[in-house]
């Protein structure tokens, strides 16, 4: 009788005794066999390849691919959801200045990196009024006009930017969306 099994354990105690006896009688595996089993188990652990879709692939690759697909899907959904909101915030802003004697007028501002070639204005022949229209996002936009490539000027009634850092004022607008 084993000391660790209660004497009055009933059926469960009997089963436990049988299992212990069976285990005690089982011969130990030879050392060489244990080494081979361990080597085989190690090889399986190091080789996570499985067959999937009829091809031998690594599950880690499948996982990475699935994660990538999910990320792309989430990104596409996010962009599709965000785009209408951003587009809705864009407003078309008209610009106009009277310069009947100018041969060309350019609109420059922080929306076109102050590039005099970016936004040439169109002249209305009858009035000498120059116009342009830009789609601008909400924000503070500072701008001016360049007449004939050399004279910087502003629309006198437009809001002024305030500072005269570079010698002359600019004008400013703050579109807030449609």
């Amino acid at each position: 009788m084993r000391d660790d099994v209660p004497p009055d354990g009933g059926a469960d105690a009997t089963i436990a005794l049988r299992v212990q006896d069976w285990y005690a009688q089982t011969p130990a595996a030879p050392e060489q066999l244990r080494v081979r089993i361990n080597e085989a188990l190690g090889a399986v652990a190091r080789q996570p390849a499985r067959h999937a879709f009829g091809r031998r692939v690594h599950w880690s690759s499948v996982g990475a691919a699935a994660a990538a697909v999910m990320l792309v899907a989430v990104g596409v959904l996010a962009v599709r959801r965000a785009r209408p909101a951003r587009d809705a915030e864009i407003s078309e802003v008209p610009f106009a200045i009277d310069a009947p004697h100018a041969a060309r007028v350019a609109l420059v501002g922080n929306f076109n990196q102050w590039d005099a070639r970016a936004t040439p204005m169109r002249r209305t022949a009858a009035t000498g009024r120059w116009t342009a229209a830009l789609r601008l996002a909400p924000g503070r936009h500072v701008y001016a006009y360049i007449l004939d490539g050399k004279t910087w000027t502003v629309d006198s009634v437009a809001p002024r930017s305030g500072d005269k850092d570079y010698g002359s004022i600019n004008t400013v607008l703050v579109p807030t969306g449609r």
Partner: peptide, 15 residues
């Protein structure tokens, strides 16, 4: 961005 805008404006004005 406001600082970069100032730099670009100054550059455009040949300051």
């Amino acid at each position: 961005q406001p600082l970069l805008d100032k730099i670009l404006e100054g550059s455009a004005r040949n300051v």
